[in-house]
Computed example of a mutant assay.
Amino acid sequence: MYSPTIQGVLAKLIALTSERDVNALEISLAHALFELVAPGAVAIYKLEDVHSKKFALTVMEGGDVPSAQIPADLQHMLEQCVATGQRQQYVRQDGETVTLYPVSCAKNKPLAVIGVTAPEVAGFDQITGMLLQVYQNFIALINDNEQDTLTGLLNRKTFEHKVNKVVTRVQNRHQREDDALGLHYYMAIFDIDHFKLVNDRYGHLLGDEVLLLFAQQMTYSLRDHDLLFRFGGEEFVAIFECHDQQEMQMVLDRFRERVAEFEFPQVGRITVSAGYTEIMAYDVSSHIIDRADVALYYAKHHGRNRVCNYERLVAEGALENKRNEGGVELF
């Protein structure tokens, strides 16, 4: 029976806690489990949508890579694992037993299920559980560091890192000329109309409640893979992946309409304006923000409660183009 040394345990903990990106942390965890506990295989099933209980296999270490389609019986066991918060045993068609471990954040929100295949469950179960607890605690620290304390959305500090990853993705597609999927990235800035009047009339406590409920509307209305940020005050930012500008406009208008129809307790109805721009290869985060902000400014000064696209405003002659072909603004 394989028995890990103290040095081995500490080395894996150091490697695990050196990561700051959640995806890289998942890979590091799978490596640690595979090498430290010596199982046959490790799989990480991330819970992508809490409401529909949609799981996706994000990491596989050791063993054969399974089909992207999760079998119905395994899906049921993953749901049971998350619902009970207890480890479950799943027997595959080939007779191998997979031990499923639930992983949750500090607020008991389910994050993922770790599947471990090993010949001797009793030998590694305790170490696996402890290592997963370290992972769970560290994920909670990362989330607390990345989230806005009032709304729970991503905070401004994390924006630069997230948007740079998106720009890199766009660059890679551009270099490969990989437009088969026909997907584009956009960044939008939202600003609650006349929010100062809300604070002046109802006080900052109710103002904070409006911000919290607005953030909830973003979470409920927009898609699970959209990146949602609170930039401060009544300003929010989101990064989207869409097929084209028309789809992006539809998504944003639908959200704007939902906000306008929502009854905020004691305050009544409010509206929101938004400006958005496409993220291009070799873009710079500050330039992306500036373009979206110009479109937002236009929306604010042309009636409010509307969504404006920077590129369309330029094409229509309503704005002067502030970027050249390289994606750098001209001063």
Rank of each mutant, 00 (worst) to 15 (best):
R87A: 08
Q89A: 15
Y90I: 10
Y90P: 06
R92E: 14
Q93G: 13
Q93D: 15
D94K: 11
G95K: 15
G95M: 12
G95C: 10
E96L: 15
E96V: 14
T97C: 12
T97W: 02
V98Q: 15
L100P: 02
P102W: 09
C105H: 13
K107Y: 08
K109P: 00
K109Y: 13
P110R: 08
L111Q: 10
L111K: 09
V113I: 03
I114K: 02
G115N: 07
V116H: 10
T117E: 12
T117N: 06
A118Y: 07
P119I: 11
V121G: 02
A122H: 11
G123R: 14
G123Y: 13
Q126R: 11
I127E: 10
I127Q: 09
I127N: 07
I127D: 07
L132E: 10
Q133A: 10
Q136D: 02
Q136Y: 02
F138H: 15
F138D: 15
A140I: 03
I142H: 07
N143C: 01
Q147D: 05
D148C: 13
T149A: 15
L150Q: 10
L150P: 06
L150S: 09
G152V: 04
G152K: 05
L153D: 06
R156S: 15
K157T: 14
T158R: 14
E160L: 10
E160A: 05
E160W: 03
H161R: 15
N164T: 14
N164F: 03
V166Q: 05
V166L: 05
V167D: 02
V167L: 02
R169Q: 13
R169P: 00
R169W: 01
V170K: 03
V170M: 00
Q171R: 09
Q171A: 03
Q171N: 14
N172L: 05
R173W: 10
R173P: 00
H174Q: 08
Q175S: 13
Q175K: 10
E177K: 08
D178R: 09
A180Q: 08
A180V: 01
L181T: 07
G182Y: 00
Y185S: 12
Y185H: 14
M187A: 11
M187V: 12
F190I: 08
D191Y: 04
D191F: 04
D191Q: 01
D191L: 03
D193G: 02
H194I: 01
F195K: 02
K196W: 04
K196N: 05
N199W: 09
N199F: 03
N199P: 01
Y202I: 06
Y202M: 05
G203Y: 01
H204Y: 05
H204N: 05
L206C: 07
D208P: 01
E209S: 08
E209C: 00
V210F: 08
L211M: 13
F214P: 03
A215L: 11
A215I: 10
